[in-house]
Design a protein around this nucleic acid. Structure first.
Lengths: 206, 206
DNA sequence: CCATCCAAGATTGTTTACAATACGGTATTC
DNA sequence: GAATACCGTATTGTAAACAATCTTGGATGG
């Protein structure tokens, strides 16, 4: 999620055991799980590698994400309890100061919490979980969008606007903000991808 | 999915090793995976049990399923290729004859294939995968709906109507059919649940 | 009679060792 | 000189043994 591990990089089980101070059983479990999430590619008897996403995959994931996140904000019961708004504002402040100080790890986590709480308001546990799952699939491309400070700042302002819309129970505005908020990430990734590999390549990454 | 294993039934690793002729490593992997899907509950150091779904969970899952399946049929490119229609008809015939002969295992699998091919037409791999994931979460409640032959027959007729709508490129009709097709399963489950435990109980299953 | 404690058994979690497989380089053959 | 066979190494996949934990049943004491 921070762009430290690059696509096609090998993930050797024993190395990960040393790194995370655990045994191969758990590392194995994690690798299989990450494979299911699409973040890791596993080749039998050969090992695991970091998996890159093609622009096509990214677009498809974001299409579904948009549908689900819009669905979530559509079913949030209005008006939202003041306590929930406060919780969001608190996370937003945390996110905001992390953006200001350039602490990308905290940016990542506070942004995550913000959205979890926001979508959590919808009350449908399955929907929340599914939104989370899809977000995880594209963790790896966040580092592209977050490379530009202006993108981070725009996200910060989106959050503020979302809180305002929530407070005023303006659902349509919230839906529009949700859609807008999702756009830049895939766009930044696809642009970066095309700069590197050219426009034609839409085949799965190997 | 066939109702052989009942909620709260224990799943002992060694027993499953014997049953599936494999070693504990793989059984362990499977149990963790099933836990993530919500079909199995794991208690650390104590073991795994078959997990029951509450009516609330079932309703939530079906709400999201409906959204996604409707999304899928909305983006299917029309007209559908004749070859794809034929493939669906073939699976529908298989399903139909399994219903007639009461072969529930084949009913299950041919129904699964039918829907996979149908939603596969939408072309969005992530959407297809997510629909599949949610379907898996409610595999366990199918045995309730399938207990009544008239339900099986209704499903059979739905499939025929869907094929007709596909052939005629009537999208709105397909959407309506998709919604209708999803209704009976959760209803049958919730009715059976209430008969057994009473209406008030909406807490998570233990 | 009830609560508590303890020990035996069952089960999961971890470690280790070993087997199977795939890759890369070197020698061999034509 | 090129293709191929071979072998050592690195890594994954499997098996077995061991340790940790929990449950159960009965004994003990109040």
């Amino acid at each position: 999620m921070l762009g430290r591990r690059l696509p096609r990089e090998r993930l050797v089980e024993q190395d990960l055991c040393d790194l995370f101070q655990t045994h191969r059983g758990d590392v194995r479990l994690a690798l299989f799980e990450l494979e299911k999430k699409g973040l890791v590619e596993r080749i039998p008897n050969r090992g695991a590698l970091v998996r890159g996403l093609t622009p096509l995959e990214v677009m498809e994931i974001y299409t579904v994400r948009e549908e689900l996140e819009v669905m979530a904000v559509r079913i949030i019961p209005f008006p939202v309890h003041a306590k929930d708004i406060e919780r969001l504002e608190q996370l937003q402040r945390q996110h905001s100061s992390a953006v200001a100080s350039g602490d990308l790890l905290t940016v990542f986590y506070s942004n995550l919490s913000f959205h979890r709480v926001l979508y959590g308001l919808c009350g449908n546990a399955c929907l929340i979980e599914t939104i989370d799952l899809l977000a995880q699939k594209v963790y790896g491309i966040r580092s592209y969008a977050n490379a530009f400070p202006e993108q981070l700042d725009r996200a910060r302002r989106d959050h503020l606007d979302m809180i305002k819309a929530l407070r005023g129970s303006r659902r349509d505005e919230l839906v529009a903000l949700t859609r807008r908020h999702l756009r830049p990430s895939p766009e930044a990734y696809i642009k970066a991808y095309e700069r590197r590999f050219g426009k034609a390549d839409l085949a799965p990454a190997h």
